[in-house]
C-alpha cells in the first residue's frame, strides 16, 4: 500500500459518501444518472468475485464490502425509494449503457491477463469502470445546471483514478516485476473522460461561479 493508492481509495470513498449525502439530505437524485450507478454496481460485483476466496487484508475486504453495499444501496434507492425515485431525470438519462456492457465484455474476452472466468470478469470490470461515467456526463450536459454536491461527487470520482495512476507509476518504479497495463491504460482513458469536466469544475471554482457545462 502506498500513499497514492490510499489517497485514491479514500477519495473514492468520499465520492460515494458525497453522493449518499446528496440523496439522503435532499431526498432527491436529480442530476444523477441511474445508468452510471447501475454500471458501478456491476463493476464492483464483477471485480470482487474473489471477495470470499482470496483474503488479502481486512482493509481490502472491508472496502470491497463497502463499495458493493453502497453501490447497490444507491441503485435500490433510485429505483425503489418513492421520494427519491420521483426526482430521477428518467427522460434525460437515456444513454444506451447496455452497449457499454456488451462492448466491454467482448473486449474482456479478447484482452485479459489470463483466459479464466475470474480474470475475464476482472478485465471486464476494469474496462466498464473506465466508461461507466459516460451516462452521467451526458446527463450533466443535458441538465445544464449542476448542484454542488453532484459536482463534488463527480470531481472526487474522477480524482480517485488519477491518484491510482500515480500509484501505478510509483509501483512501477519500486516493485521488481509490476505490470498492470490493462488497469493502467483503462485508468488513463477513464481519467481522460473527466478532462473537460475538470476544466469547467476548475473554472467555476476559480471564478467562484456555479458549475456550468456548455450545452
Amino acid at each position: 500500500m502506498n500513499i497514492f493508492r490510499f489517497a485514491g481509495d479514500m477519495t473514492h470513498l468520499i465520492s460515494i459518501l458525497v453522493l449518499l449525502l446528496k440523496i439522503y439530505a435532499t431526498k432527491s437524485c436529480s442530476g444523477i444518472s441511474l445508468k452510471t450507478q447501475e454500471l458501478y454496481a456491476l463493476v464492483f460485483l464483477t471485480r470482487y468475485l474473489d471477495l470470499f476466496t482470496d483474503f488479502i487484508s481486512v482493509y481490502n475486504t472491508v472496502m470491497k464490502l463497502v463499495f458493493i453495499a453502497s453501490s447497490l444501496a444507491i441503485v435500490w434507492c433510485m429505483r425503489m425509494h418513492g421520494l427519491v425515485k420521483r426526482s430521477y431525470d428518467k427522460e434525460l438519462d437515456t444513454f444506451r449503457h447496455y452497449l457499454l456492457v456488451a462492448g466491454c465484455f467482448a473486449l474482456a474476452v479478447l484482452v485479459n491477463e489470463k483466459f479464466t472466468f475470474q480474470e475475464i470478469f476482472w478485465a471486464f470490470s476494469i474496462y466498464l469502470e473506465a466508461v461507466a461515467i459516460l451516462p452521467q456526463l451526458v446527463l450533466l450536459q443535458r441538465s445544464g445546471n449542476v448542484d454542488n454536491l453532484t459536482g463534488q461527487y463527480i470531481f472526487f470520482l474522477g480524482a480517485y483514478r488519477a491518484l491510482y495512476l500515480l500509484n501505478w507509476i510509483y509501483r512501477y518504479f519500486t516493485e521488481v516485476r509490476f505490470s498492470r497495463w490493462i488497469a493502467c491504460v483503462s485508468g488513463i482513458v477513464q481519467t481522460g473522460l473527466y478532462a473537460d469536466f475538470f476544466y469547467y469544475y476548475f473554472l467555476s471554482w476559480k471564478n467562484n461561479a456555479k458549475l456550468q457545462l456548455p450545452a
Binding site: 473514492h12 474473489d50 482470496d54 488479502i56 472496502m63 491477463e113 475470474q118
Partner: peptide, 10 residues
C-alpha cells in the same frame, strides 16, 4: 498474496 489472484488493489 494467495495464488491466482494477483489483484491486491480495489
Amino acid at each position: 498474496l494467495p495464488k491466482g489472484s494477483h489483484h491486491d488493489e480495489l
